[in-house]
Every structure is written in structure tokens, then in C-alpha cells.
């Protein structure tokens, strides 16, 4: 990776993805503004994110930015085009642990998954990590009953 992504955000006008990155050779930190073209309030955020991630001119810079983050930024951009506020977009990413996600449509579910992906990416061990172990096994010894099993009647 020649470029280390530091931060990645969105700019509304004109629509663009903004990337702060460090050039590995020179250690210089720079800003790259990637215009988001052919993207409207009806566009598919997932396709758009994928297109950007594979774009010949930008893909090297975006290597360290996950597909799901790019999707999230496109969702925010599209919400803005549809007239929703940034607060609205951010709130829609929030997870309520008691919510039944089976009941959400594709778009709503993608927002929640995006939030979950952040945690996933934070804790993820990739195969390029020096301490990566493919078959990582761990024994756990349970000490207490789980409160989720109380008030159970349905075959628990």
C-alpha cells in the first residue's frame, strides 16, 4: 500500500469523497477530493461505492478505505440530495439492540450493517497482520447463567 488512508469523509457541494492520506514514501499528509459523478438521489449507493473503489485513478488511494465506509458516505450524500439532514443520516445508522432487524428493508438494513461493520473492522484480524492465526481456537469456561434464558418457555 503506497497510500495510508487517515480519514475519509464526504463533501456535499459539489458532491465528493474527501480523503486524507499519507504518502508512504514521503510521509507527507495530503488531501484528495474525489468527485462523485453520475450519482443522484435515485442512485444505488452500493454500486456507486464499488465503482469508486475500483476506479483506476482512485483505487490505490482508496485501498485502505472499506467498501462499507464508502457505502455509508454515499448514503449520506444521497440523503442530502433527497433533502434529509446530516443528523437524520447519522441517526439512521444508530443501532438499537432490541430492534428486530428482520423487519427492515434493504436500505434500512444496510444502514445498520454499516454501523456494525465499523466495530467489525476495528476488531478485525486480517491475514496480512503479523500475528494472524487462521485456526484460532480458544476455550471458554462459563461461570454464570445468562439472563437471556430467564422467562423462557419456548423450548429454551
Amino acid at each position: 500500500m503506497r497510500f495510508e488512508a487517515k480519514r475519509c469523509g464526504v463533501q456535499f457541494s459539489p458532491p465528493a469523497i474527501v480523503l486524507i492520506y499519507q504518502h508512504k514514501d514521503t510521509n507527507k499528509v495530503r488531501k484528495r477530493i474525489i468527485p462523485v459523478r453520475n450519482f443522484s438521489k435515485c442512485s444505488d449507493y452500493s454500486t456507486a461505492a464499488e465503482r469508486l473503489k475500483n476506479h483506476p485513478r482512485h483505487r490505490d488511494y482508496l485501498e485502505g478505505v472499506s467498501q462499507s465506509q464508502l457505502e455509508r458516505l454515499h448514503i449520506i450524500l444521497r440523503d442530502h440530495m433527497q433533502g434529509f439532514s446530516l443528523q437524520h443520516s447519522l441517526a439512521s445508522f444508530q443501532l438499537d439492540p432490541d430492534q428486530d432487524l428482520n423487519k427492515l428493508d434493504d436500505d434500512e438494513l444496510a444502514r445498520k450493517k454499516g454501523q456494525m461493520d465499523r466495530l467489525f473492522e476495528r476488531n478485525q484480524r486480517c491475514k496480512d497482520d503479523p500475528d494472524f492465526v487462521y485456526d484460532l481456537e480458544m476455550d471458554f469456561h462459563t461461570k454464570e447463567k445468562c439472563s437471556w434464558d430467564e422467562e423462557s418457555d419456548d423450548g429454551f
Binding site: E121, N123, C146, G155
Partner: peptide, 20 residues
């Protein structure tokens, strides 16, 4: 540290895992 009892009665193996 918590034991989840679902499936115990049916003898289903239980795994604590992390895809991350």
C-alpha cells in the same frame, strides 16, 4: 463467561466465535 442454555436440552454443540 455466561452460559447460554438454548440447545443444551437437545445436546447441540455451542461455540463462542468471532468472525472479526
Amino acid at each position: 463467561q455466561r452460559s447460554f442454555s438454548f440447545g443444551k436440552k437437545q445436546g447441540l454443540p455451542f461455540y463462542f466465535v468471532s468472525a472479526a
